[in-house]
Design a protein around this nucleic acid. Structure first.
Lengths: 164, 164
DNA sequence: ACACTTCCCTAGTAAATCGATAGGAAATCT
DNA sequence: AGATTTCCTATCGATTTACTAGGGAAGTGT
């Protein structure tokens, strides 16, 4: 399409359904407590996530070492570590692949020429900033609705909530 | 072939080829000066961008009011405003749509329930942060290879350049 | 032992998106 | 008129996304 009018996303920051679901599922587990285990179906119900889809995501979280699972009648999933030791960044990375890459190429391997040369440090700066936030905020923070001060102050600016 | 660049993979930060090309094309125009116009073919050559693809992107920039065009023998594209008044964010937004989205939805339109309630302010905070950087840095900054101090200091941290 | 529950694994699929290309119409210059 | 360059529409193949289906493996309670 030459003109893109109706289609949305994907400029700079995009959080996929997969990542979003993963974080929300992890938050349910965080809220349940480290030693209570929840069934996939219960999480799916609570958060309105297609449960078969969620099963796959929970499998990723397990393989990533963030949750542990148990089969059978009293089975389910629970967090593998305390919720305050799991940053949101970890959940997203495990569910959705590496946090950042550049067209398959890592930022340090890019080569820009001419007036575009300084683009690389710019992307790096943006990335560093995103990492700082998502690496600082943990499941415990979000589940308890107590975000760190510096993050809150960013979200408090009414301008942050406006559209484009 | 030249340089192809930047898409940040998957999770958090992704810059599409479209956005990357758009910024690089705008940078060529910025370097050329506000009253010099460049042909699409010349820009494509200089930055190693498929020229037919670039034509579509330049069309978006024109419709977004960032560049003006002229057809015919002495035609081409030039910036519609001074390079120091065009933030990188504008270029990306015009070429690629809204800067941040979750599951294709803009953050203010999301609704989270239960322990996921505080997810919304978190996404907003991240978005505000990205906006702050990309809204502050202009085409002039990048074209002149003189990024603002606060951005540079972010990119200076060696940790920012590490892989995952 | 047996039934039941719940996780686990593999495949598949419809739709969207991405990057790119082609052909020609419209405008502008010499 | 003739050359040039933007502008418009349409299409393409490949990949990704978001999901669905079905069944096997492992654990639990009776």
């Amino acid at each position: 399409m030459g003109t893109r009018a109706a289609v949305m996303d994907n400029l700079s920051m995009r959080i996929s359904a997969r990542a979003d679901y993963a974080v929300r599922a992890a938050l349910e587990l965080a809220a349940a407590g480290e030693d209570t285990s929840l069934k996939a179906e219960a999480i799916a119900e609570a958060q309105g996530i297609p449960h078969k889809f969620l099963e796959g995501i929970l499998g990723d979280l397990r393989r990533g070492g963030l949750v542990v699972s148990q089969r059978g009648g009293k089975g389910g999933y629970r967090l593998a570590r305390p919720a305050d030791s799991i940053p949101i960044a970890d959940v997203i990375r495990v569910a959705d692949g590496p946090l950042v890459s550049v067209r398959g190429v890592r930022p340090p391997d890019l080569s820009y020429i001419g007036p575009a040369e300084s683009l690389l440090p710019l992307w790096i700066a943006v990335r560093a900033n995103v990492r700082k936030i998502l690496g600082e905020v943990t499941l415990a923070h979000v589940a308890a609705a107590k975000l760190p001060e510096d993050v809150l102050s960013l979200a408090d600016d009414p301008e942050a909530w406006t559209n484009p």
